[in-house]
Amino acid sequence: MDFQLSEDQRALRRGLRDVLEGRFGRDALRAAVDEPRIDRKLWRALGDAGFFALCLPEDAGGVGLSLPEAVLAFEEAGRVLLPGPAVATFLAAGEVAGAAEGTTVVTAVGGPFVPWLEEADAVRGDAAGAVAVRSVDPLTPLHRVQDDGEAQDPRAVLLLAAEQLGSAARTCEAAVQYAQDREQFGGPVGRFQAVQHLCADMLVRAELARVAVYAAAVTEDPLEAAGAKLLADDAAARNARDCLQVHGGMGFTWESDVHLHLKRAWVRARLGGTAARAEEELAAAL
């Protein structure tokens, strides 16, 4: 047993972080908020970096890696709040032409919603009669559809959970950074235990979600993926709220990035099936 990242996995994560932070830094994020659309050049750059073809076999033009590498990739996507239906495109690689290369943007019905329906080149699932809603998340346009009640693809559940994990870890870091920089009463607010304990609880949530997501990627057990999604949803949404709290009044502003993490966390929590369903599945297995 060696339940830690291998050297290759660390290198992969570093490489993807460089690509994502280089191509989708803070300026790009805020530009996307002002004008939400899928950046086709970024999408193709991710395709060139092998992001969408990570789990395709090498003889099919893919990278030939497995789910653990995929969750590391989506964790990085979650950190930077990458806009677009990345999970659906990833799962369409090898099945929808151009998905693996990032030239075709594929979205999918997830529960009662389809994200990015108007921008996507292809949609999987039945989006008939889809009605646009004004999405709470400025970076995820949403359409309502009839929820078919079908169980979600466990891989989609897991990759959404990985994005939630990335977001949860990022908001923990952002809270710690702000607590070190922001000074009140003659010093950084991060010296107060009341603030420290919020941050500590954020780390605990993120780290518990991390091992749950990673383990579910190794075992490929749908039930373990459902449990990981529960913990990751919780970590992402609650960490974003605590991060907001640590940021004080600034956290309540549009110009702060914290609300973008919170809103996306709410969207992802809905897209992978409800918490109620996951909890019932886990209970039934007891």
Partner: peptide, 29 residues
């Protein structure tokens, strides 16, 4: 249903705590 769902969530928590144990042991190793 509230009780069932609570048990389901705790099941996810303790599954993750077991994985965290394996993670920490691997790190110690």
């Amino acid at each position: 249903a509230v009780l069932r769902r609570g048990l389901g969530r705790l099941s996810a928590e303790f599954a993750a705590l077991w994985r965290l144990t394996q993670w920490n042991v691997s790190e110690a190793q």
